[in-house]
């Protein structure tokens, strides 16, 4: 909640605070991805891309601002709802949440290096080393 309170002045100052979320994959990854596919990959309900190749989703830690945008736009839930969702799976041995990285730069590096990886960053942060599979507005 503290995070949201802090966001309010930022929102009033600039439209840039409504960051678009770019879902990124390795440049060699030719799979097409819908929001539903991304939802399934990041909730553990699908484990491979639409072309059948194994997928390794990479998440951002909760402290990174774009994480809440992604949870809301791609998964349709708040970050605490996602935590409750994963605690159901983790504590029943039925699933493991995606690895979490501390910064957008780490996600960019991880996705640039790994042909199986899928992650997300704010659209403005995208670099040439990764391919944007879908932009969530």
């Amino acid at each position: 909640m503290l995070k949201k309170l802090l966001l309010i002045p930022a929102l009033t100052l600039s439209f840039m605070a409504f960051a678009n979320v770019a879902v990124i994959v390795h440049p060699s990854n030719a799979a097409t991805l819908s929001q539903d596919d991304i939802n399934k990959l990041f909730t553990g309900r699908a484990k491979s891309f639409t072309d059948g190749k194994a997928a390794e989703p990479v998440n951002l830690a909760e402290g990174v601002a774009i994480r809440a945008d992604f949870d809301q736009k791609a998964l349709g839930r708040s970050s605490s709802q996602m935590k409750a969702y994963w605690s159901k799976l983790v504590f029943t041995g039925k699933g493991t949440p995606p690895k979490e990285m501390a910064s957008e730069q780490e996600v960019l590096d991880a996705v640039a290096k790994n042909p199986a990886a899928i992650g997300y960053v704010s659209a403005a942060a995208v670099t040439g080393g990764v391919k944007v599979a879908l932009t969530l507005n």
Binding site: K47, S48, K83, A84, S87, K88, F91, T92, G93, K94
Partner: peptide, 27 residues
């Protein structure tokens, strides 16, 4: 990818919340 075997001491799946009834955060 879709089929898993668990063996040992397990939670009996009587109810919707059986698996995580002790994990209050989950409900």
């Amino acid at each position: 990818d879709t089929l898993r075997i668990n063996a040992g001491r397990l939670r009996t799946p009587f109810y919707k919340y059986s698996d995580f009834r002790d994990v209050g955060y989950a409900y």
